[in-house]
Design a protein around this nucleic acid. Structure first.
Length: 430
RNA sequence: GCCGUCGUAGCUUAGCCGGUGGAGCGGUUGACUGUUAAUCAACAGGUCACAGGUUCGAAUCCUGUCGACGGCGCCA
């Protein structure tokens, strides 16, 4: 029976004899005494190993075990002001499960080193905290949608057709044919709403774009939803509800982890519906007032998104982009011709787009026209067109970049640190 | 894809107007029974990214290749 390190701090357990196990986080020794900071998934605690309090060979092992050696320790919980956190374990038994070789990551760290040793770096305080927050975010997405009557629906990763017009796909060999890694769950979701009506999913999406920026991964986790009968306004409400719920859940469950990144639960709890909404045309005007002249019909770029998001203290919806720069499935607003019924949700503080969504075009003719406009062959989308032939209904959905949300919540410099093993333009190892 | 910066011990780096490479951390050995990135002493550890060129002589100058990082473009 082993005790998790965080349990040692929870109530008054001074004087109790416990067994703990984990990895050596820090170690130093001074003659007849060794100080070992032990780490497990729940936290760290100082262990003092004094010569004479345990068998000689165990004391020697404790002195010579290097950082990251795995150990099992028995000892008494003692109060001591000199120990970090105020308590320590005074060892009466010290068993090394595996002596570690010199750990390649020391206090001197470069970006390159940490990426090359990513498999070891994820043991760090920062990475462990991020992974815990990330786990909370995934759980919150599930909880949000399931509690509102959504079904989880899975789509294939291997596909034969495009999802996002213009985006580059990863090509893979599929026996004697070509297949592509999915860029979005959406087209399959549009089929599945005819049986389940309200669905969501969290799955990897793949984009073979050569982008080298702080907000692009080639493989990222995409939380998507699709709803039958829903219009743009319905999914805007779901989007702001989802983001607010994620923030609230992280604030409640991950205060210690947030602190490591200098983020505060209070700030997250301020992210509540409704979020401000701005039409593309108005966004251009607001940008122009600050001296940024964006030609009409251009997508908002990094600088513009950053500027815009800093005008609000909550994430902001930008809606009604010009239809000519939008993907083929985004329909024209009948009340604002030339504009799409679509939106991006921009996070605060310049972190940029975290959600993109829209209503979906239901006219086969319009879909075909726009596919041809984008240089696609409508013949590849026959099954998708079928969905409009058999009881078509208005429907809408959106996709959220999970790593972008994690990055925003923690205030990370780069999206690569919002996932355990990032896949980047120049990085596929380890 | 374009532009920029950079590749020197396991790691972080000094040396760059050419003349056989220094340090800190980490490691090993020793001292030390209250350390907080412990301290002190000694030792070990280098094809100066790779290939070519200039030169009596290249880590240093030139060319090319590869790799890393940052930005732009493109994009979620």
């Amino acid at each position: 029976m082993f005790t998790a390190i965080e349990e040692l701090f929870k109530e008054d357990r001074i004087g109790e004899i416990v067994r703990v196990r984990g990895w050596i986080y820090r170690t130093r020794s001074s003659g007849g005494i060794a100080f070992i900071v032990l780490r497990d998934s729940s936290g760290t605690v100082q262990v003092t190993v004094k010569k004479g309090n345990l068998p000689e060979n165990q004391f020697n092992d404790a002195r010579k075990a290097l950082i990251e050696s795995s150990v099992e320790i028995e000892g008494e919980i003692a109060e001591d002001k000199r120990a970090p956190g105020g308590i320590e374990i005074r060892a009466s038994g010290f068993h090394v499960v595996s002596f570690a070789e010199p750990f390649p990551i020391t206090e001197n760290q470069s970006e390159e080193l940490l990426m090359d040793y990513r498999h070891l770096w994820i043991r760090s305080r920062e990475m462990t905290a991020m992974l815990k927050v990330r786990s909370t975010v995934f759980g919150a997405v599930d909880e949000f949608f399931r509690s509102r009557g959504y079904y989880e629906f899975q789509a294939p990763t291997l596909t034969g057709s495009n999802c996002e017009g213009g985006s580059t796909q990863f090509e893979v060999k599929y026996f004697d044919r070509k297949a592509y890694l999915t860029q979005s769950w959406q087209l399959y979701a549009e089929a599945a709403i005819f049986s389940l009506e309200k669905i969501y999913d969290i799955a990897p999406s793949f984009r073979a774009e050569p982008s080298k920026t702080s907000r692009h991964l080639t493989e990222y986790w995409h939380a998507e939803m699709e709803v039958a009968w829903a219009h743009l306004d319905d999914v805007l409400k779901e989007a702001e509800g989802l983001i607010s719920f994620i923030c609230k859940t992280v604030a409640e469950k991950n205060a210690p982890e947030l602190e490591i990144f200098g983020a505060s639960p209070e700030d997250l709890l301020k992210i509540t519906p409704p979020f401000p909404r701005v039409k593309y045309d108005d966004a251009l005007k607001m940008l122009k007032d600050t001296g940024m002249d964006v030609p009409y019909g251009k997508d908002l770029r990094t600088l513009e998104e950053e500027k815009l998001s800093k005008m609000f203290d909550k994430p902001v919806f930008v809606t009604h982009y010009p239809e000519e720069i939008m993907a083929f499935y985004k329909p024209t607003d009948p009340e604002d011709l030339g504009k799409s019924l679509c939106f991006d949700l921009l996070a605060t503080n310049g972190y940029g787009e975290i959600i993109g969504g829209s209503e979906r075009e239901t006219s086969i003719e319009v879909l075909k026209e726009k596919l041809i406009r984008d240089g696609e062959d409508p013949a590849n989308y026959e099954w998708y067109m079928d969905l409009r032939k058999y009881g078509s209904v208005p429907h809408s959905g959106f996709g959220m970049g999970v790593e972008r949300v994690v990055r925003w919540i923690l205030g990370l410099d780069h999206i690569k640190d919002a996932i355990g093993f990032p896949r980047l333009r120049n990085r596929i190892y380890p």
